[in-house]
Design a protein around this nucleic acid. Structure first.
Length: 373
DNA sequence: CACCCGTGGTC
DNA sequence: TGACCAAGGGT
């Protein structure tokens, strides 16, 4: 209390919006000034952006709106096609919820998205952040959209040093109090742009920040230490195996995974159970059928959210066994059309390289390139 | 609340 | 190289 502090002003939306008008990012889902909002596109982009970088989501957004321009079109698409189009983007429950949500909107709500936070919050795949973002951006509601960027900006501006996630409630209140009645959608996006481009986790560019004179953390020189987060858990190493089977007619075995859980509903290579560590020497017991399985030299590494996976790859050719339930045979030339998660593509590429040489692995190359920044 | 759920870029 | 983290939601 007797401790002397530098003066800090009050953060105001006007300063942030003025900055946004000059420095906002040009993104595929962002409208030109004056262009009417399309709730479908706003919703689609927000689902894709959950825990996903702008660069990764961009090409997927373009592909989805080109293929399914309306929520009705998306609702009528088979789930398998939606999952295939989503392949590689990760967190596949989002795609399942996306499809379910489209059907709710198209069938139960007459094609119109709810126009307030409470209504949006009831939709599958729409939580507090996404409901606020859609309400503000698509419906001009005075709603807060608190994502990781906003948590960081607000924690710093107000000097909130309570650890996450305990501080979430206070951050939400502070954010809500700042949302202007005018331009709430721009304010939401401005706050996220600020966090993404200036108020970054490390080495924030405070000299360029429209709120530098209002920021408690900056005044105290503790920007980089906020927000306070708990230490992350380490990711244990799990071993497993992938089984790549080919028949003499040029087809390969593809499995559709169970509808929920890790990689739920996705097509790909037959794998040992991912829920536990499987010794490569014991892996053949989990093969889709009894065959002369050949172990491929080398391994495939992949990192999931809560464990690391090291896969040994086994191959069998001229297979005559029947496909097991949940599997089918796909022409090798049709592999580019099979939407496989990245871990599956890695395993498939490893097998194809071993059996057919380095050119063959292009059959399972990632179809989308990263967006230009 | 704690845990589950993908992937790629960055420093 | 590896730890961090990205427009989080479901259970």
């Amino acid at each position: 209390m007797s401790q002397r502090r530098r003066e800090t002003k009050t953060p105001h939306s006007d300063a942030l919006l003025a900055w946004y008008d000059r420095h906002r990012r040009r993104l595929p889902w962002r409208l030109a000034p004056g262009e009417p909002a399309d709730p479908y596109r706003t919703w689609l982009s927000e689902i894709m952006l959950q825990q996903t970088t702008v660069a990764a989501a961009g090409p997927y957004f373009e592909a989805f709106v080109a293929r399914w321009p309306t929520v009705e079109a998306l609702a009528e698409a088979p789930l398998e096609e939606v999952l295939s189009e989503w392949a590689g983007l990760g967190y596949y429950a989002r795609a399942r919820n996306l499809h379910a949500c489209a059907q709710v909107v198209a069938t139960d709500l007459g094609g119109a998205f709810p126009d307030d936070e409470a209504g949006l919050l009831k939709l599958p795949g729409v939580g507090p952040y996404t409901a606020g973002a859609i309400a503000a951006i698509a419906f001009n509601r005075q709603a807060a959209a608190v994502d990781g960027n906003v948590e960081r900006v607000i924690a710093r501006v107000y000097g909130i040093d309570a650890p996450m996630p305990h501080a979430k409630a206070e951050i939400r209140l502070r954010t809500q109090a700042l949302v202007p009645a005018d331009r709430p959608g721009d304010f939401a996006q401005a706050l996220m742009d600020l966090g993404a481009t200036l108020c970054t986790p490390k080495r924030p560019a405070c000299a360029l920040c429209p709120w530098d004179d209002a920021c408690v953390a900056h005044a105290q020189g503790i920007e980089e230490s906020l927000p306070v987060k708990a230490a992350k858990k380490d990711r244990p190493l799990r071993r497993g195996a992938a089984f790549w089977a080919e028949r003499g007619n040029g087809t390969v075995l593809i499995e559709k995974r169970p509808p929920k859980g890790l990689l739920g509903g996705m097509d790909g290579v037959w794998l040992t159970p991912l829920g536990r560590d499987v010794d490569p020497a014991e892996a053949r017991a989990h093969a889709p059928f009894k065959e002369r399985w050949h172990r491929v030299a080398g391994e495939v590494e992949h990192v999931f959210t809560h464990f690391r996976l090291r896969l040994t790859v086994f191959t069998a050719t001229d297979v005559t066994s029947f496909a097991a339930p949940g599997t089918r045979w796909v022409a090798r030339s049709d592999l580019p059309g099979v939407g496989m998660p990245t871990v599956m593509r890695k395993a498939a590429a490893h097998a194809l390289r071993a059996l057919h040489g380095p050119d063959a692995e292009k059959l399972v190359a990632l179809r989308r390139r990263r967006a230009r920044t």
